[in-house]
Amino acid sequence: MSRLAYQLAPAALIVILLAIWEAVCRLLAVPVFLLPAPSDIAVAAWQNAPMLIDAALNTLSMAILAFVLASAIAFAVALLISTHPLAERAVQPLAVGLQVTPIMAVAPLAVIWAGLDHPGRAVVGLAAIVAFFPIFSGALTGLKSADPDLERLFDLYGARPLDRLFRLRLPSAVPFILEGLKVAAGLALIGAVVAEFVARSGLSRGLAWRLMEASNRLETAKTFAALLVLVLMGVGLNALMQVGERAVLRWWRGR
C-alpha cells in the first residue's frame, strides 16, 4: 500500500459517495425538497455563504465562550476537590447527577433564567454544562495519576502541599487534561447547537437556527448546506485540538 493511497483514501471515499448520490438523484429525478443532489447543495451553500458564515461564527463564538467558561470552572472544582478525598466523595454523586441529566431537560430552565431576551446566554450556559465533565473528570483523574513512587519520593523529602501540587500533581495531569479539553471542545460545539435548537429563538442567530428555519421552509438544499458548514466546523475544531494536543505532549515528553 503506497503512502499516497493511504493519504488519499478518505477523500476518495467521499468523492465516490458524492458521485453515487448525485447519480441517484438525477437518474431517479428525486424532488429537490426531499433529497437535493450534492450539486444543488453546493449551489445553495454558495448563494447563502455570507449568511451561513455569519451564523457559523455566531455558533462558534458561543461554543468557544462556553468552552472557556467550562474549563475555568471544571479546573477550579477539580483542584479544590483533589485536595481532600472527602471532598471528592461528597461531590461525586452531584457531579454524576448533573452529568446524566439530559441537556434538553435543563434547557427550558436555562432559557427562563437567562431571560427570554438573551437566548445567547442560555446557549452558552447549556453548552458549558455539556463541556464541563470531560475537563472535570480529566483534570481530577490526572491530578490523582502521579506515579506512587514519585509521591513517596515527595514524602521522603518532606514536600509542602503546594510544591507537591505544582511540581508533581499538575504536571502529571497534563496528558489527562489535554484529552479532556479535546473532547470538551467538540462537545461544546454540539452543546451550543443543541441548546440553540432548544432555546428556539431567532435571537441567537446561530447555525442551528438557520438550519431549522430552512427546514421549516422546506428549503432542503439550504438545510444541507447549513449541516455541511456545521460538519466542517466540527472537523476543523477537532483537527485543531488534535494538533494542539500533540504539540503540547511532544513538549511534555521531550519527544
Binding site: D147, G158, P171, W252
Partner: peptide
C-alpha cells in the same frame, strides 16, 4: 526504586535538582 521514577516532563537536571529545591 526499581524503576528510575523520574518526572517525564522534567529534564535530567530538573529531576536531580528536585530534592534540593524541595528542601
Amino acid at each position: 526504586f526499581q524503576a528510575p521514577t523520574l518526572m517525564p516532563w522534567a529534564s535530567a537536571r530538573a529531576n536531580v535538582a528536585l530534592p534540593l529545591e524541595l528542601a
